[in-house]
Design a protein around this nucleic acid. Structure first.
Lengths: 185, 185
DNA sequence: AGTTAAACGGACACGATGTCCACTTATCTT
DNA sequence: AAGATAAGTGGACATCGTGTCCGTTTAACT
């Protein structure tokens, strides 16, 4: 396919920058397409040309961080990447996810307008990763456990816990305890 | 306060019946106030007089089942009610919740339009219950664990698992294993 | 400079929300 | 039984967000 036209690229940058500001400024779930178009100084039609909804803009903003983590899982150094025992890898994954939510939780929230959590590509990836680790650790009936274990990583849960006054460390230990206890038994 | 007027009672019944049908018929998250008013043969204003939004109607429909479970937790027979060791009570709670989600999952979905999960009264109750059991079992740092453990009970997670082909039993065992393993270690 | 096709932006139609108020009706009073 | 009163009703209205459509602009190529 052809390279991107100059004005298109310029507008994409403006849109993403404006959206990032808006997501950070107020409740990400309340940001509308109109808001973003207005803030970016761009027409409605221009916005819809590239992004079908607000969630997809948040996904675009989150993408680089997510793919970085996915790289780490697949080919990074242990314990996150291959080479460490499953229990440690799983714990490392949870810690990394918590860090990602800590820094970009507002974006993650914005990606989940409605019940889209499971339809997003990233969820499938996390699930496959957890599943393979559970299998490697010979945990029985890992299919149901995978979703159960991923549930506490939902952005709403994490941000709720942090808003309740729990420290990042407290949340992390709760998460990792879940994994280690489950695998070692 | 005064007793309810006859026409008001009649309309409330009509509204709840119509809403129950609609929630069962299509995606509960797509049901609108207009739909319900139309289906119940009632004006918009009448509907808004009693219920501020769709979620609150779903809550009303769900209420009796939820309070029944809450009664069971507080004063019912063991292992759900008091008298059994914490690990068993927690497992019984998860089983009961799974059953409730199995029968009324669509209603539970409708109560969570937006990110209201944690603002609903019931969540506070479940959380307090889990927390007290964790404390009774001398589990360290139970505060963070409580929310983490409740996350897999989110209606979206449960219905997603069931829609993926997992049986009710498989989900139940995944949930209870989580609890027993955590407490016994 | 001229041509072409991609990109732009605002107007439009639609659907849902929540409010407001003139009218109806149940219940109480005597 | 009739009137008084306050609660209840229903639909019109203003507002907002969505997604599409199309005449106009502009970048890129010749």
């Amino acid at each position: 396919m052809k390279p991107e036209r100059a004005d298109a690229a310029r507008n994409r940058t403006k849109v993403l920058a404006a959206a990032a500001d808006l997501f950070a400024a107020k409740d990400p779930r309340a940001v509308t397409m109109d808001d973003i178009a207005k803030a970016a100084g761009v027409g409605r039609g221009t916005l819809y040309r590239r992004y079908p909804d607000v969630a997809s803009i948040a996904v675009a903003l989150l993408d680089e961080h997510e793919t970085a983590l996915q790289q780490g899982l697949m080919s990074g150094p242990p314990p996150l990447g291959p080479g460490a025992p499953p229990a440690e890898r799983l714990a490392a994954f949870y810690t990394a996810m918590a860090d990602l939510l800590e820094t970009h939780g507002h974006l993650a929230l914005a990606t989940e307008t409605g019940g889209r959590r499971f339809e997003i590509g990233a969820y499938g990836f996390w699930r496959a990763h957890v599943l393979s680790l559970l299998r490697a650790a010979s945990v029985p009936a890992p299919e149901a456990l995978a979703d159960t274990l991923l549930a506490p990583l939902a952005p709403e849960v994490f941000t709720y816990q942090r808003a309740q006054g729990l420290s990042l460390e407290e949340v992390k230990t709760a998460l990792t305890r879940l994994t280690t206890v489950l695998i070692s038994s």
